[in-house]
């Protein structure tokens, strides 16, 4: 059992228009796990990540990253939003999007320079997208766009990575490439938290899992808690058949 806690969520409640979408979430994520957050649509998976990252304001509760508030620990955290959350017709190139990952370390006003460009190129290389560096982002396939987003997170050189459905709408090759990179990150001692949809691949990809449906159902090692009981509690229907197939 790892003992250091990377992310700690206490009594977190988040509401949209006074309707709670997350209710009293307590969660401890140990350092160095590759964790899936699973749950049905509308369970608050993305909301949980956004609240941890301070993008959404919770109505109650608190979040800490290595024991301190997120605002003090930004440099330790990288975020990959859902691919569909941005306008891919935006006039910019793959390299430029990856460079945006370096903006956080630069702070306000300072411009990215050669050092940032070099880091961005290295990240592009890691995700196999170097040949596409000057391509306009709308000219990339869905899988390539997701790799660009991953590269942008890698360039942040963080300790904790949050990813919102990185496998959505990508081809099988990209999915394998992405999960291999995530596994490498875990090997390097990083903590990776992924909103995930495909229950079939949870045991294969992840070593830690959180079941979420407005409330937290369970969290722990995949081998201990990824079972029919928790799946049924989370999804409300019996998952036995679909998982054992």
């Amino acid at each position: 059992m790892k003992n250091k806690i990377a992310v700690k969520v206490d009594d977190l409640t988040v509401a949209y228009n006074y309707k709670p979408v997350l209710w009293d979430i307590d969660l401890e994520i140990p350092e160095g796990v590759l964790m899936a957050i699973v749950g049905p649509n509308g369970a608050g998976k993305s909301t949980l990540i956004k609240s941890i990252l301070g993008i959404l304001k919770p109505i109650a509760g608190s979040v800490s990253i290595y024991g301190k508030p997120y605002e003090d620990q930004r440099s330790l955290v990288a975020y990959v939003p859902q691919k569909g959350s941005v306008d891919w017709d935006f006039p910019t190139t793959a390299l430029d999007v990856v460079k945006m990952g370096t903006y956080g370390s630069l702070g306000w006003i300072k411009r990215p320079g050669l050092k940032q460009k070099k880091a961005a190129l290295e990240a592009l290389e890691k995700v196999g997208m170097l040949p596409f560096k000057n391509r306009q982002i709308s000219q990339l396939s869905g899988g390539q766009q997701q790799r660009i987003f991953l590269a942008r997170a890698l360039v942040q050189n963080a300790s904790i990575y949050f990813m919102d459905e990185p496998f959505q709408g990508v081809d099988a090759t990209t999915e394998i490439a992405i999960i291999n990179i995530l596994k490498e990150l875990r090997k390097a001692g990083k903590t990776v938290i992924v909103v995930h949809h495909d229950l079939q691949t949870v045991p294969e990809y992840f070593d830690w899992v959180t079941f979420l449906n407005v409330k937290k159902i369970a969290t722990g090692p995949v081998k201990d808690i990824f079972n029919d009981d928790n799946l049924t509690k989370t999804y409300g229907i019996n998952y036995k058949v679909s998982i054992q197939e």
Binding site: K50, L53, R74, P81, S85, F90, M100, Y103, G104
Partner: peptide
């Protein structure tokens, strides 16, 4: 830089502290 990142991806901008 801040205008660009927040126009393209407001979520990332927020998580980076802009």
């Amino acid at each position: 830089k801040e205008l660009k990142v927040s126009t393209f991806d407001a979520g990332l901008a927020a998580s980076l502290g802009f």
